[in-house]
């Protein structure tokens, strides 16, 4: 899978309702008829979730536990695969670079944008959002040209860095930052828009009161705005972590474009699972690997939700 972009753009008001403060008043807002309409809409989602989310997980559990060598054999062979450690090492490097830079830059950019005038801010928000409008595989194609010193419009920078040809640019050590840059440009814009919506929801009186108390723009950003969008930052981290550990499209497309030089077919754990299933006909081991990713994602999500008090109702 490619790195998921941020959720669809929401207005400030709508995002605030989902953000928590208004959630506690759900029962008062949903009497009789509208509540059944709510169940109807949720039912559609639940049905799809069951068919496309839960059922495959149950099937994966069944496959992982039905390996030819016994209940745990698929897990044992997955863990002892000589490609297992390197795939997780790659993804770890990528995640550290990407999550840290994305969190820092998105928050910094959105706080700065929020201080600009409405018109200028809107223009920048649109600008940041454009790269995210490209679907995962399409954006990788654009990056293929960007990274080839003989074809890139920024070839002079690559030459300056000492990269004479595409193979030099995509040297193994460069791959985690390259994928992090790709993921940032496709995902950050959407998150900036979402965060901006969250910032817009902060009551104007609160910001005015801070101003009257002598708070400057920086202090307001750090001490008023930042704590109020904390849950959205946690939300971004949860989704980004789950998406990032499943990195697939970027290394796959880049690998096939590099004609097999330097980027293996099992660079990331998700690719390794696909490789083992589709090129070694071993669906049991692939399912075991997929479950490792699922458990990892759930654990980190649970930790972030718990530590970030994401579902806490005030």
């Amino acid at each position: 899978m490619s790195i998921p972009s941020a959720p669809a753009v929401t207005s400030g008001r709508k995002s605030a309702a989902r953000g928590g403060r208004a959630a506690g008043t759900r029962e008062q807002l949903a009497p009789g008829g509208s509540r059944s309409a709510g169940y109807f809409f949720v039912a559609l989602y639940v049905l799809l979730l069951l068919l496309l989310g839960v059922a495959p997980v149950v099937y994966a559990v069944y496959l992982a536990l039905s390996g030819s060598g016994g209940l745990t054999s698929s897990f044992t062979s997955a863990f002892s695969d000589f490609r297992f450690a390197s795939a997780f090492e790659h993804i770890l490097e990528f995640m550290v670079i990407w999550l840290v830079s994305q969190t820092f830059l998105v928050v910094a950019l959105v706080l700065m944008l929020h201080n600009l005038s409405q018109r200028v801010g809107a223009a920048f928000r649109f600008l940041f959002y454009i790269p995210g409008a490209l679907a995962g595989a399409a954006s990788v194609i654009v990056w293929l040209f960007m990274l080839d010193p003989t074809a890139s419009p920024f070839g002079f920078i690559l030459h300056w860095l000492g990269y004479a040809q595409f193979d030099n640019t995509v040297a193994p050590g460069n791959l985690p930052p390259i994928f992090a840059i790709m993921a940032f440009w496709t995902g950050a814009g959407g998150w900036i828009v979402v965060m901006y919506g969250a910032l817009n929801n902060i009551p104007h009186e609160l910001l005015e009161a801070a101003q009257i108390d002598g708070s400057n723009a920086f202090q307001t950003a750090m001490q008023i705005k930042l704590p109020l969008i904390r849950k959205w930052i946690v939300y971004m981290l949860v989704l980004s972590f789950a998406g990032g550990t499943q990195l697939f499209v970027e290394p796959t497309v880049l690998g096939s474009a590099a004609l097999g030089v330097g980027i293996s077919k099992y660079w990331s754990p998700n690719q390794l699972a696909w490789f083992i299933a589709s090129e070694y006909d071993n669906f049991n081991e692939a399912a075991a690997l997929s479950l490792v990713l699922l458990v990892l994602g759930l654990m980190v999500a649970a930790l972030l939700v718990w530590r970030g008090r994401l579902f806490e109702v005030e």
Binding site: D167, N168, A171, P172, A258, L259, G260, V261, G262, I263, S264, K265
Partner: peptide
């Protein structure tokens, strides 16, 4: 071919 491209070529390029 895949293995050569993954493990040998990057070293040779470097």
């Amino acid at each position: 071919e895949s293995i050569f491209g993954d493990v040998a070529t990057p070293g040779l390029i470097a």
